[in-house]
Amino acid sequence: MLTTPLFALHQELGARMVPFAGYSMPVQYPQGLMAEHLHTRRSAGLFDVSHMGQLLLRGPQAALALESLMPVDVQGLGLHRQRYGLLLNDEGGILDDLMFVNRGDDLFLIVNGACKQADIAHIRTRIGQRCEVVPLPERALLALQGPKAVQALARLLPHVTSLVFMSGNHFDWQGHRLYITRSGYTGEDGFEISVPAAGAQALARALLAQPEVAPVGLGARNSLRLEAGLCLYGNDIDTSTTPAQASLGWAIQKVRRSGGEREGGFPGASRVLAELQDPGRLPRKRVGLVALERIPVRESAVLENMDGQHIGHITSGLLSPTLDKPVALAYVQPDYAAVGTQVFAMVRGKPVPMQVTATPFVPANYYRG
């Protein structure tokens, strides 16, 4: 079991540690998941996400090369701007979702922890001859999330206030070179901080010393991202789902779609573009659901229509701490994907009525300037 540079700090803080993506990670601290979740929504939570993969792509062809692996606009991304991307296989299925930044001299990528070795191997195999692929295992990653995150971080680094949602820059703190983006996985304003492993614990302690900040574990990270309507790789998206099925068409910029100047040219393009043009050909579609009774509905629960016919399944679900009602992400047959449609989740053999709803379940609070 691997550990992050903050392992000793987690133990000191009384975290309950669990295996996750090959690492021993904090699932919650003594205050508990509910308190950690609500604290992040109203103040600021500090997350250790050092299990995630960080890597650089370098060279004059790096943007063009990365664009050959994803259906997104890499070449047109501005300096120190960040974008969400999807690595696809040759059938248009999603190998991983990731974030990437144009830093001028390189492209900085953050990939999911459970996928990082496979992602790096895939990227090297497909484009390693066109650009340099540099993993960054010596760096940790912290996420500071919540409406008061900027107040807390600005006491240490006043210039972070210049960042807006999905932008980043280099910062220096106590001799450590940081790269900070104003982004995150909670639906709140916040920051993700790439820091050398040697400085991670000192930075985490400095942030936890701020009155707004409390440590938050993986449990609340999951409930926060679900309220924000964000996908968890392995649950809500995987190699069996395409961008259109996953309701991620918004992540494919016009320039890469049919009729765009750089249309296609990525793995599975013919299928992906055909599904975006003709949603009627989709076998299923990802939707948000809210239960009409206060009965939590978990992943893998079967969904049925009023006639008891199987029409889909839950991929993520829990009792929303913010809304105090059950919410879920699910895949359903296209005929049942319209907002307002009622379906039934089978929980211990009993049907729980649920209604298709727009996501996010909790309005986003990103800072756009």
Rank of each mutant, 00 (worst) to 15 (best):
L64G: 06
G349D: 13
E261F: 10
D97N: 15
R281W: 07
S194C: 00
P26E: 13
L6Q: 05
A63I: 01
R271T: 11
A301N: 10
Q31C: 05
G312Y: 03
Q151V: 10
F171Q: 03
D90R: 00
G308H: 12
R103A: 13
Q31A: 14
T161W: 00
V347P: 15
G308Q: 06
A301S: 14
E192A: 10
A121K: 07
H37Q: 10
I295G: 01
L109G: 04
P196F: 03
A204I: 04
L319N: 11
G32P: 14
P283Q: 12
R16D: 09
V339C: 11
V356P: 00
L55P: 02
A220Q: 10
A154P: 02
Q75H: 08
V287E: 10
V356H: 00
D278T: 14
K254G: 09
A114H: 11
A358M: 14
P283K: 11
L178F: 08
H37C: 02
H122Y: 11
P243W: 04
E263Y: 08
D105I: 03
M99G: 07
R42Y: 05
N102G: 12
G369N: 09
A330S: 14
V339I: 11
L33F: 12
F20G: 01
P19Y: 14
A358D: 15
E67P: 01
R81I: 02
L142E: 03
G268P: 04
V134K: 07
Q54W: 01
M34P: 00
A44C: 12
F165I: 01
K116M: 11
S194V: 01
F344D: 13
D172S: 13
G369T: 01
L163A: 01
C115W: 10
D324T: 06
Q174H: 12
R130C: 08
A44L: 09
V255T: 15
M70L: 14
E227G: 15
L6S: 05
F266M: 11
G219V: 02
F361N: 07
P30Y: 10
P147T: 09
A121H: 08
E36R: 08
R348Y: 14
G190F: 07
Y336G: 03
G288V: 02
L208G: 06
S50R: 03
G168Q: 09
V302R: 15
R177S: 07
F7K: 04
D105E: 15
E67H: 01
S258P: 00
A291C: 14
A140W: 05
G14H: 05
A291G: 15
R182Y: 00
S24P: 00
W173T: 02
L303P: 05
V49M: 09
V111Q: 05
P267I: 03
A246K: 03
E67M: 07
Q151F: 15
L248T: 09
S223I: 08
V352K: 02
Y233W: 15
A358F: 11
A220K: 07
G85L: 05
R205K: 14
G128D: 08
I193N: 01
T161A: 11
S247V: 14
Y367M: 06
L289K: 11
N169M: 09
I311M: 10
L318S: 11
D189G: 14
P211R: 15
P279M: 01
R281L: 12
I127L: 03
T341M: 07
S223Y: 07
Q342P: 04
T4W: 01
H122C: 00
R256T: 09
V255L: 13
A149M: 02
